[in-house]
Design a protein around this nucleic acid. Structure first.
Lengths: 340, 340
DNA sequence: TTGAAAGCGGTACCAC
DNA sequence: GTGGTACCGCTTTCAA
């Protein structure tokens, strides 16, 4: 920057102003400085900028790169940031490096805003961190005061999925889900909300709920589904906690020589492959790209407009009916009359 | 840091040494300082560190988040970095913000190393940037001098795929690929190499090559495949430039009321969904996770061991046979005798 | 409007 | 081994 100042015959401060096109620079000076910048190929060091002001970066902590729903969120966030001058910095969590340390790491880099997706970080810790940097938490229904939350109405989505199955005559519907950490009354993980809504619906129909847990690792849903399907043939439909699990249920069906004509499957998220004709997975969409975009917008409200009160934004999910959900087949247990 | 120094009754410099566990600190001092750090919850600012030394970050520029092969590369890179103290910072390209500006952006953030995947950045520009920061370019076969390249043997992979199809009796094999920018003799994009290898194989068999281009956007391969399949029924197999394209070919087949018993399909990359029983896509794997891991290793050689000469690392691809490739069916044109 | 100078939070070299 | 101090490259008063 000194070089530029010397070349343009002005002071460092002036160059700084031109770079940030701040107030109080004459046209003639701006012109000279810009020429010098171009001639010398000068680029400001963001590290140095960050020490005094902004780093013009938004951190996105993502617990699992393999999750295609999260990929959609990333894409939405990246798209929303185009033209704002901010750069999206994605920090993937992996192994022991996930949740807290990753967010801390991003905060140490002086990002101007943080999108957290990790289910494994406590609300208390997040409140603390949110004192330093604007945060929006995606997915979990927290009653936060210092950070924003961005969720979808998981209970409504679940009712959409189950209502659809019931309209096809399904009664004995199993729920395949993952265990979620940190479940509390004021901090509810999405899968916990879905599970509860499932149990409520089943209670209303007077049918015993059938819940199967897996750990979410690749193959774990497959194994759980195989066990469920072979052990409990009265099940006519499976509501999977999200699409990746549902996809593995489809695998299990296929390798058991069955199809969705035998057992219907519905997922959650509407990941891209769900709409492929060979998969054709019915699901509930929560508009991942739009979630990513909204997350950035919420952050920007705090960064540029200085909002400080928490917002809790909720997306309305929608049903996507495809061919993995079919009317309950004739030879199965008939639906037990009309349910209340 | 001043606060820590005061609390521990030592100098700033001492604290700095403890933080980086550098040479020349007595145990008693280290103990006091560490206690003070813990008590005050001190965390060093990476921006400040970056100004004098290292930012302990590796930048990964990725042109397309939707590409699952690249997702695997990301995962491998993230996994390799666990425990090294370096953080992976992924900068996704999108819209006009891709290639050059994204890499520049990362470089401005003083990353210690850069993984570039973008096909759209010129070798000359990369050579220039590589003077400032260690770079490994993934995918493209550049004859670089300042940066490393990490590729797979695309010609061999193509021969694997085509050899497999020919062994099943296929002769009229089409190639669906994407147009690649910046094709030059000393900077060959993977798809250009695959295309050339395809043409060579076809020339050897004396069959007219049938190449179809699409732009790689979602749905473009589907449209191209539909057109190809309906216009040219003599085609018995399609070699797709990568798995995402192949998946769309499968879509096209399905919506045309056909299956892989009619037309075989083979892809490249072995993305996760390829092994799903409902998809079961034959393909060529280039071990994406391992590519990511190796990219980091190459970078680390430069960062910690100071290597300066370029390395050009090549992965040996392998065939993955699944059910999307079938023997050419009876009622189709019979294979024209034994090929040389 | 412009320039000079004081930091920001670290690192590294230097005497002690 | 330890503490003092001069930077790093930028932003931001504050005078001129």
């Amino acid at each position: 920057m000194d070089d530029v100042a010397r070349a343009a015959g002005v002071s460092k401060g002036a160059v700084s102003k031109v770079v940030r096109n701040a107030y109080g620079v004459s046209d003639s000076m701006r012109e000279r400085v810009e020429k010098a910048i171009k001639d010398l190929g000068y680029r400001p060091r963001i590290a140095a900028q960050a020490m005094r002001g902004s780093s013009f970066s938004i951190g996105l902590e993502i617990p699992n790169l393999g999750n295609e729903f999260l990929t959609q969120v990333m894409q939405g966030a990246a798209a929303r940031l185009v033209g704002t001058g901010y750069q999206l910095l994605v920090a993937p969590g992996i192994g022991e490096m996930r949740g807290t340390p990753v967010l801390e790491n991003l905060a140490d880099r002086q990002v101007d805003g943080l999108i957290a997706i990790s289910p494994e970080v406590t609300p208390e810790w997040l409140e603390e961190l949110a004192l330093d940097v604007p945060i929006v938490l995606v997915g979990r229904h927290d009653e936060s005061v210092n950070y924003d939350t961005l969720t979808n109405d998981d209970a409504a989505g679940t009712r959409l999925a189950l209502g659809h199955l019931r309209s096809l005559g399904h009664v004995r519907i199993a729920h395949l889900t993952i265990r979620t950490p940190l479940d509390g009354p004021r901090s509810r993980p999405p899968h916990s909300v879905r599970l509860e809504a499932y149990e409520q619906v089943m209670a209303q129909t007077g049918v015993e709920p059938r819940v199967v847990f897996c750990d979410g690792a690749p193959g774990s849903a497959y194994a759980a589904a195989r066990e469920l399907l072979s052990r409990d043939p009265s099940i006519t439909a499976v509501f999977a906690g999200h699409d990746s699990l549902a996809i593995e249920v489809l695998s299990a069906l296929a390798t058991l020589g069955m199809s969705t004509r035998d057992v219907s499957v519905i997922g959650y998220d509407d990941i891209p492959i769900a709409s492929h004709p060979l998969v054709s997975l019915s699901t509930v969409t929560q508009f991942g790209e739009s979630v990513g975009r909204t997350a950035i917008s919420l952050l920007m409200e705090r960064i540029t407009q200085g909002r400080t009160h928490a917002r809790h934004y909720q997306v309305r999910p929608e049903l996507r009916v495809r061919s993995s959900t079919q009317p309950v087949s004739e030879h199965r247990d008939a639906p037990s009359g009309s349910a209340p």
